[in-house]
Amino acid sequence: MSGMCSHFRLVTLILYLLAIDLLVVTSRSFPDRRTVQLHRNSNQYRVNNNRPIIGILSQDLSKSMASVSPGSTSYIAASYVKWVEGQGARVVPIKLLIPGGGASLLTSGYSKAGSILYELAIEANNNGDFFPVWGTCLGFELLLYLSAAKRNYLTSCESYNRASQLKFLSDASTSVLFERAPLAVMKTLRKEKSTSNFHHWCMTMENMTTSSLDKFYRSLATSTDDKNLEFVATIEAVNYPIWGVQFHPEKNVYEWGTNLTSVPHSSDAVKAGLYFGDFFVNQARKSQHRFSSEQEEASNLIYNYTPLYTGNVSSSFLQSYFFY
């Protein structure tokens, strides 16, 4: 994704697809904690939308990925698509599940487009329009960056190609994300090295406090890197339906690269990875966003694109979708 034209097309698609008649948020101050906690008002948002569509934001191409599809400008790893499709949702490329990857938080088209979408989501939720957001790995880091008024509080760490357990914090038991999680899933996450980590930057609990991000997000769980540095692994926004994980739950199920030696593929680890996808899809079921017609819906779905094999050029993704 490159150039301002791409960004305006993206915003137009988001505005039209999700029926949000809003201006982009200009204030980046933390919201008043008295803001209605949309994600906790389960009675208000028990919408039975059994045809949920989740947008996935594409990201900038590396040189190796560009070689697979010359002329393309961005891509989405197929594992992200499968992760939500497997839980009963469909996908439209370029929207709001913020995937992981290696793009810059400061300069990439991914970051700039993600910023626009984040602001639209905040504004939508402030106006009572339920608009859930999920961030994985780089998406997790991008959420923290944007929520801190575009200031970077991440610290260097070594947690690449590493499987880890989760250390649950006190807020986990009362969180929307974990309060109804199956006991078997919680046990797996706590006892087994069941989360797949591929990152060189981490958010510490200390920096959550220093940045005041602990006023926006509840830290639900931590993990440790190769040098025993403890970092935040899971977050949930206090007043918004926004969640993020530093690890890759989709890799447990769908990524099998020969260099991904740490990815846990046990039956229990797979179930744990799928739990997060199931949770987010069920959040999407609370939304009544619709396309204006079946024809328009069909023309925008990811089924219009064919994934290509990328395991020969990427150590992270076996298949990817490419966009021009």
Rank of each mutant, 00 (worst) to 15 (best):
R9C: 07
G139N: 06
P307S: 14
L143Y: 04
I54V: 10
L106V: 06
F323P: 03
V245R: 03
E123C: 05
L301E: 13
A124F: 04
S42C: 10
T204L: 08
L10A: 02
S64E: 14
F247Q: 10
A269R: 14
L97T: 06
L189V: 14
D268T: 10
M186E: 04
S72W: 05
A89G: 12
M208L: 13
S315C: 09
A148N: 08
V36D: 02
N312M: 14
T73I: 00
K167T: 13
E236T: 01
N126G: 04
T224F: 02
Q283E: 03
S72L: 03
R90P: 11
T210P: 11
P52D: 09
K251M: 11
R218A: 14
G114K: 01
N126W: 03
Q319M: 15
S108Y: 06
I76G: 02
N125K: 05
E141A: 07
A181K: 09
G277W: 15
I14F: 07
A66E: 14
N41F: 08
L143D: 03
G101L: 12
A233C: 04
L138V: 10
T204C: 12
M65R: 04
T210G: 08
V281S: 03
W83Q: 13
E236Q: 12
P52Y: 05
C202S: 11
F30V: 14
E158L: 10
S69N: 13
R151Q: 09
K112R: 10
M4I: 00
W256R: 05
E179T: 09
V133A: 00
A237Q: 07
I235W: 02
G273P: 01
W201T: 12
S159M: 03
I94K: 15
A298D: 11
E230T: 10
I235Y: 11
L96R: 06
K63V: 11
E236F: 07
P307F: 12
F140M: 00
N126S: 04
F216S: 10
I116G: 01
L318Y: 13
E296C: 05
S219E: 06
C5V: 01
N50Q: 03
D226P: 09
L144I: 07
Q295P: 09
L105N: 07
M186N: 12
K193I: 09
M1K: 00
R9S: 09
S29D: 15
A121D: 00
M203L: 08
L105M: 02
S212H: 09
L213E: 04
W256H: 12
A172F: 09
F131T: 08
E119C: 09
I76F: 09
E230C: 05
I98N: 01
A284V: 13
K215S: 12
Y118H: 11
G109W: 02
F131E: 04
G128P: 06
L17Q: 13
L106K: 03
E179N: 10
V36I: 02
S74P: 02
N197W: 10
L97Y: 01
